[in-house]
């Protein structure tokens, strides 16, 4: 038997999230909402990946109040932070809240949630995503930028 260190699941990538995250009610809804908004705004795949990883990191150290809107607010805040980190221009907060959102939050409410997420993540937003490696290997294979984009979208 291999000894698995305690907490090893934390280093697993978000595409095969820790069991606790998958079993959290609403996790897959949150992820599919993030993916839908990503495609509407044409964000890079890395943006959606980062948003999900912020969300998972937040939920691994905190729990949210038992309201439907709380996890949606977390989702919007994480996506907004990820877009600001990765995209050259991020849409206004109201334009992020599309694709079947049940609630609409005011910008200042989202900002407050963003701050809570930032503090909880200890301001560490620069997670390395697998997409950095996809680009790297795609270049090694000698493909053009286009194929690396296709690879990234399929990853």
């Amino acid at each position: 038997d291999v000894d698995v260190p305690v907490g090893a699941e934390l280093v697993m990538p978000a595409c095969s999230p820790p069991r606790t995250a998958v079993h959290r009610p609403g996790w897959s809804e949150s992820v599919s909402w993030i993916l839908k908004v990503r495609s509407v705004h044409g964000f890079q795949p890395a943006t959606a990946y980062l948003a999900v990883s912020y969300m998972d990191r937040f939920m691994s150290s905190r729990s949210l109040p038992d309201h439907g809107w709380a996890s949606q607010l977390l989702c919007v805040a994480c996506l907004s932070l990820a877009a600001k980190m990765e995209e050259s221009s991020a849409p206004p907060l109201l334009d992020l809240q599309i694709e079947g959102t049940r609630f609409i939050f005011e910008p200042r409410t989202i900002q407050r949630m963003e701050l809570i997420v930032l503090v909880e993540l200890d301001w560490r937003l620069r997670s390395v995503t697998p997409f950095a490696f996809v680009d790297f290997f795609a270049c090694k294979v000698g493909s053009s930028g286009r194929s690396s984009r296709i690879l990234a979208l399929r990853a």
């Binding site: 805040a77 907004s80 932070l81 600001k84 980190m85 991020a90 206004p92 907060l93 109201l94 005011e106 910008p107 200042r108 989202i110 900002q111 963003e114 701050l115 930032l118 301001w123 560490r124 937003l125 620069r126």
Partner: peptide, 21 residues
């Protein structure tokens, strides 16, 4: 922090990200 449309200012986020790097 004001009540701007973009929420937490992007420029500050980027400055923090760079300084941490």
């Amino acid at each position: 922090l004001d009540d701007g449309k973009e929420g937490f200012p992007r420029q500050i986020l980027r400055e923090i990200k760079l300084l941490k790097k």
